[in-house]
Design a protein around this nucleic acid. Structure first.
Lengths: 158, 158
DNA sequence: CTGATATCATTTGCATACGAATGAATTTGA
DNA sequence: TCAAATTCATTCGTATGCAAATGATATCAG
């Protein structure tokens, strides 16, 4: 690995100018972090175009609750990759909209149990078909084979 | 495309139970947006471990200025994929730390020109080698061949 | 049993990220 | 030329995202 944009020629010059040329070989556009950030931005934009009244993290919380049922706020955060501070805000907003409700764990008084309300269940069932379309549109620049490869490699990175 | 996690068996049952089974086939972990978000989180974490005193967006701004020299704030935002409101905050913080300076465009009085200070130049030259290491570590779960494939497909998505 | 640890949740502070509204300056087009 | 449209920058509001500190509760070890 190392230099990503260095042609085969001009090696002598590169050696002579060493540091400065080396730095200017660095291209932001080729760095995985920068492109990852842009790809994520594009996906969020596609998501918003299909589902305007819910953010991807809010959707993730509902979808996970629909999948596994009642859990503690912290456990839910672990499952959808949010730290405690972030998940609290997401759940608070879902609660304010009546999509989840919160109850204290009877045995372990530290825990806050989160569950879908009937409205929340209805919402996620309505949204899942849209989410399938969002995934498809996000992957649309790739062929089916490329998409499969991409998802496999992305999963190894995440 | 469509259903991502449906086995070949149970098709009759699926048809009978239709909607409910269909919804429960949806797995958040397989959705490109969710995995993209997690991969991005992991990269930011690796970045922070190597470069603690600068965020990836701040680094991107410095790297781009180092690459192209003075530009307007808006143009810089376009080049590093940030909207006007976001880039303003990033530049304000870099200015507060003395890494960039701002001057008014003499001809077009709407524009705010951004440039590296000597300290900013020194900082980015020091950081670029670390950024190369960050890219390598982020891609470490992949073989060299996989990494090349991944970057090619990711670029098509972004 | 009890002091040390660990876990769950909350709060605060800071940094993206973006939509929408606003104001200033420039460019366009009839 | 001059009104309309566009561009650049700023501000406000809302929503992640994470580190660090705090408080309440639970578990563990001696």
């Amino acid at each position: 690995m190392g230099r990503l944009a260095m042609s085969g020629e001009d090696n002598l010059l590169k050696l002579v100018e060493a540091d400065e040329s080396d730095d200017h070989d660095y291209r932001l556009q080729n760095q995985v972090g920068f492109v990852l950030r842009k790809a994520h931005q594009r996906h969020v934009s596609i998501f918003a175009a299909h589902i305007g009244d819910l953010t991807p993290p809010q959707f993730a919380a509902l979808a996970k609750l629909y999948d596994i049922g009642e859990t503690s706020q912290n456990q839910l955060g672990t499952l959808i990759a949010m730290d405690a501070a972030t998940v609290k805000g997401v759940i608070d907003r879902l609660k304010a909209r009546g999509l989840v409700d919160l109850t204290k764990h009877e045995v372990d008084k530290r825990r806050l149990l989160v569950n879908l309300t009937p409205e929340g269940r209805q919402a996620i069932e309505r949204l899942i078909p849209l989410a399938r379309a969002i995934t498809e549109e996000t992957l649309a620049p790739l062929t089916a084979k490329e998409a499969a490869t991409f998802l496999r490699l992305l999963a190894k990175l995440a």
